[in-house]
């Protein structure tokens, strides 16, 4: 897989979440995604960015325009050094929430991407990587 371009952004406040939505939209447009796909990518990014701010105590987002030879895509990697998630399987379930929400963040973001990886260790932080292909 080739990485065509990349950029790292801070994710620390709820204003950053809005900024990330706008930035990811621009990246999705430049990679040639149609309107529905753009919206799915941006919405997925918004979900995870919020988690990074609210549960991870802030972190970073790495945006990459990628290419696997035949298809172009966008890969988003969110990383934080927060408390981590003890039970990943439970956290991925719809309706599971510690933040008082509906608990659609992780499961929803997974449904909005083609590839979704999450790794987390209690006390060390969480990393979420999602990719969407054209």
């Amino acid at each position: 897989m080739d990485i065509e371009r990349s950029e790292v952004i801070r994710v620390t406040s709820s204003e950053d979440v809005v900024r990330i939505r706008q930035l990811v939209r621009e990246w999705a447009i430049r990679s040639g995604f149609n309107l529905v796909e753009q919206t799915k990518i941006v919405t997925g990014a918004s979900e995870i960015a919020r988690n990074t701010v609210n549960h991870g105590g802030g972190g970073t987002l790495l945006v990459e325009a990628v290419n696997n030879g035949s298809r172009r895509g966008i890969r988003l990697t969110f990383e934080d050094k927060g408390p981590g998630i003890a039970d990943l399987e439970l956290a991925m379930k719809d309706g599971y929430s510690t933040g008082g929400g509906l608990g659609l963040g992780l499961g929803g973001a997974k449904r909005l991407s083609n590839e979704f990886e999450i790794s987390s260790r209690p006390g060390e932080g969480t990393r979420v990587r999602m990719t969407r292909w054209k």
Partner: peptide, 13 residues
């Protein structure tokens, strides 16, 4: 908007 509606359904909301 249509794209927003499709995404919300996909999101499960």
């Amino acid at each position: 908007r249509p794209a927003v509606a499709i995404t919300l359904v996909e999101l499960g909301l």
